[in-house]
Amino acid sequence: MIDVKGVTKAYDQKIVVNNVCLQLPVGGVTSIIGPNGAGKSTLLSMISRLLPMDAGTVTVDGLDVTKTPSDVLARRLSILRQDNHLGSRLTVRDLVTFGRYPYSKGRPTAEDMEHVRKALDYLNLEDLADRFLDELSGGQRQRAFVAMVLCQDTDYVLLDEPLNNLDLKHAVAMMKLLRRTADQLGKTVVLVLHDINFASCYSDYIVAMKHGQVAYQGTPEEIMRPEIMRHLYEVDVTVQNVNGQHIALYYA
């Protein structure tokens, strides 16, 4: 379980995340939604020790993320940021192999290579395995990064806006894949999502943030309500039940 207690972050007096307390359940897909500047990415970065916090604690299965050795944590929790604008010219296979670094320390064993093979297979990347990342399309590259964090084989997989730069087809494929990762591999997937309807259709649990605080949390059914959406995003939203899914309409 990820346990967030009183976490606060401020930049030059401006409080971005304000005293957040949150318990993220084990298993399934949890989405963090909210308007721009709500502190979603900042919170995710602090949970994954990429960003130091000004106050509070985060524990992952009882391990304090600021005190646990980084390489121990790297076998429990992986994080993929949104701006994977790499300057590095690596092949897909090399990138995915680096996902094993917390275990192999640079000397991958046969077992590590088996993980790499499985991850490439899981994301349909075998044909692209020996291509350089800078020769791929945005969607292919995003898949390669996800393959890397899956190869890291952590119980918790955190992704910051994994649908960024993906077209509809690839966005759907990515969400299905993350759903499968949670259902078949038993991982806990935590996402920051902008698209509330993707969050509604693919999550087990939704955390809604506003002004640096957790405004609402619950199942998609509990969160996908017009009054909640209106309060979060300050636009008129109607929510309709389409084939058993709660879909927010806010286009007109």
């Binding site: 944590l73 790297a74 300057g87 590095s88 680096f98 996902g99 640079g106």
Partner: peptide, 21 residues
């Protein structure tokens, strides 16, 4: 230390995610 440098070349967040300082 080649692997460390390769990972570091991918940026601070990547490096931290893989458990390196």
């Amino acid at each position: 230390a080649a692997d460390r440098f390769t990972v570091a070349g991918m940026g601070q967040d990547f490096t931290t995610n893989l458990g390196m300082n």
